Simulated scan of single mutants.
Amino acid sequence: MKVRKAIIPAAGLGTRFLPATKALAKEMLPIVDKPTIQFIVEEAKASGIEDILIITGKNKRSIEDHFDSVPELEQNLSEKHKTELLKVVQSTTDLGVNLYYSRQAHPNGLGDAVLQAKSFIADEPFIVMLGDDLMSDKVPLTKQLIDDYEKTHSSTIAVMRVPDKDVSKYGIIDPEQEQVPGLYNVKNFVEKPDVADAPSNLAIIGRYLLTPEIFDLLESQEPGAGNEIQLTDAIDRMNKTQRVFAHEFKGDRFDVGNKFGYVKTNIDYGLVHPEVKDELETYILDLAEKIQKKNKK
């Protein structure tokens, strides 16, 4: 069956970015001049996804507004002959995918957020895309997972090697063997283990391809880490009855879920942005020189 649906959980409170996220959805924080969630939607479209359900929560209306049309703004840009800006604004509405929205009443973990999409997904395989991770590669990571599914017809989780000091921040896989280069059979999935207990440094990152059987498991899943319904725990249970693979991502991952990662991502993207890259590079070189002089004192 073709993979044509995706879920983007966007109901989190964004506490790591307070006070900015007191009234603004974390997913709307810009990378230079584009909200993070737009990068996720564009990856889905580039991977062949047709329908996307965004799971929202309170104070998340700005996400829906961003992807909606704004006739007054478009008319203003048209009258002032700001053609390029008009195209940019219209491109956020004419995405070529169907967007739907559902609200998670109470934040109760990623597993609970995914469970909200049960009726939307029905009996189809689907993608889960987390907004904290932006991925860059010649072939979009979501498309890589879909390509794996077309060969294995099994759930496949994206993983990436992380430094040992960061292992406890992630779900970690216990790899059994490589089915093909970069595609692992998995013994167990462990949610946020201590580094001493971690079976590997292959961390689950923000892309999942799941079969619909996951929903029955989520409905009976006991709370795990943080007293929340953890998707990783349900995936580990599913792995006991049907194969779940892990796809090792070799491209570039930008973690925008913490302050330093967010600032770093803005710099990295700014250095290739046509409007600011030259000035930003000059600024960084000048700043580096100032820092070196300061440290020599």
Rank of each mutant, 00 (worst) to 15 (best):
Q177G: 03
I173S: 00
D112Q: 03
G171N: 04
D166E: 15
E191L: 06
E191A: 05
N108H: 12
L183N: 02
N108P: 01
G171Y: 00
Q179P: 01
G182F: 08
N185R: 14
S102N: 15
D132H: 12
L145M: 04
D123I: 00
T156A: 08
L130P: 01
T142Y: 00
E150S: 09
Y101C: 05
L110D: 05
K169R: 14
A158D: 07
H153T: 11
K169H: 13
Q144I: 04
I172E: 06
G182S: 03
E191V: 11
S102T: 15
D148L: 04
G111D: 07
K192C: 14
S102Y: 12
P163F: 06
E191K: 12
S136Q: 13
K165F: 14
E176I: 13
I172Y: 05
I173N: 08
K118W: 08
K143N: 11
D133Q: 05
L183V: 06
V128S: 07
T152W: 11
A117S: 15
R103S: 13
Q116V: 14
N98Q: 14
L145N: 13
I157D: 00
P163C: 04
T156K: 01
S154K: 07
G111A: 02
H106A: 12
E178K: 02
V114S: 09
F120T: 04
Q104L: 15
A158M: 05
A122T: 13
S119T: 14
G182I: 00
K165M: 12
M160S: 10
P140A: 10
N108W: 05
Y100G: 12
E124W: 11
D147A: 08
H153S: 01
K143Q: 15
Q116H: 02
V186L: 02
L110I: 09
D166G: 03
P193M: 08
V139P: 06
P175N: 04
T156H: 02
F126W: 07
N98A: 13
G111S: 02
N108K: 03
A158E: 00
I173C: 00
G182Q: 08
L141T: 06
N108Y: 08
G182K: 07
H106F: 12
D166V: 00
V162Q: 05
V128M: 06
P163E: 11
R161E: 15
L115I: 01
K187C: 01
L183P: 05
S136F: 02
G111N: 01
V139Y: 04
K169W: 04
T156W: 05
L183G: 03
D147N: 10
P175E: 09
